[in-house]
Amino acid sequence: MEHAHDPSTAADDAPALPRLRPGGSRDRILDAAYELFLQRGIRDVGIAELISRAGVAKATFYAHFTSKDELVLAYLERCHQDMTVEAIIAETGRRTENPTGRLMAIFDVLDGWFREDDFQACAFISTMLEMGPAHPLGITSIEYLAQVRAFIRALAVEAGLEQPDVLARSCHILTKGSIISAVEGDREAAVVAKRMAASLIRDHGGDPIAAD
C-alpha cells in the first residue's frame, strides 16, 4: 500500500538507519571515518585525525587498513548497508509487496530521510563528485549507485512496465536529483520527485494509483 505524504508522520515512517555501533578498534576507526567523512568529505580528513578521533595507535590503524583509500572503501560499504541501497530495498518491501507500489515507496523512504534533523548528502554522490568518476573511489561510488538503478529496473520488469531500462534510468535521475535538492534545503524534494515518478510510470504503461 502506498503511503500518502504526511509530514507529521514522516519521521515515524522512515526506516531505522543505524549510525555508530560499538565494537573493537576497527569499528572505532570506522565510526570516526563515518562521522568525519560525512561532515567534511574525504580529502579534508587526514589519517592522523582519524587515528586521534578513534583513540587507537598508528600501528593499530595500519593493522586494519593499509591505506586511507582502503578505509574509504570500508566506509562506503557501511554506508551501503546503513544509509541507502539496502535500507531502501528493505523498507520498500516492508511497506508493500506490489512492485509498482515499491517504486513509489522509494520516494516515501527518501522523504523520511530528508526530514531527519541530521540529514546529510548521500555518501556515494558526495564521494563521486569529490574524487571524480575516474578515481577508484569514484568508480566504487558509481557502482553502489548503479545498484539502486538495477533495483528500480527489477521492479519495473516485475510490474510489467514498458521499456524498464528507460524507466529505471529516469527514476534513478529523480532519486539522485532529489537528494541534491534536499542538501540544498528543499525538504519537499522527494514529494515532488514522487509526482514525477508517477507520471513516468503512467507513460510506461503502469498505474501508480492502482498500486495504492
Results as ranks from 00 to 15, higher is better:
Q120P: 07
R169G: 14
E86C: 12
R115G: 01
P133W: 09
A168V: 00
A11K: 14
A14K: 03
Y62D: 11
P22N: 01
D44H: 13
A198R: 11
R115S: 04
E70D: 15
R19Q: 15
E91T: 12
R19S: 15
S67D: 07
R40N: 01
M1R: 07
D118V: 12
I29G: 07
A197F: 07
R195S: 14
I88M: 09
R153A: 08
A189Q: 02
H5P: 07
E188R: 15
T60K: 05
W113L: 14
D118F: 07
S8E: 14
I29N: 06
T127K: 07
C171M: 12
A54K: 08
G41M: 09
V148I: 15
M128L: 13
E116K: 13
I88G: 08
L36C: 06
S25K: 14
A210M: 00
I201M: 04
D82L: 09
M128D: 03
I89H: 06
A156G: 07
L71V: 00
L38Y: 02
S52N: 13
G101C: 07
A11N: 12
F124L: 11
L145K: 01
L155S: 04
D111I: 09
A123I: 04
G185D: 02
V72T: 03
G206V: 01
E184W: 05
G177A: 05
H5S: 11
V148N: 08
L129E: 14
D212S: 13
A189P: 01
I125N: 05
D12V: 00
R78E: 00
V183Q: 06
T140D: 15
L167H: 11
H204P: 08
A121D: 13
H80F: 11
A193S: 01
W113P: 12
V183W: 06
R102V: 05
A10I: 10
D82V: 08
G55Q: 02
A63D: 14
M83E: 15
A54N: 05
V148C: 06
E143D: 15
R26Y: 01
L167F: 06
A150N: 14
Y62L: 10
K194C: 12
S170Q: 15
R28F: 03
A150C: 01
H3S: 11
R115Q: 09
A74L: 00
S141N: 02
I173W: 13
A121M: 14
V72S: 00
H3N: 13
H64D: 04
D117G: 12
P18C: 09
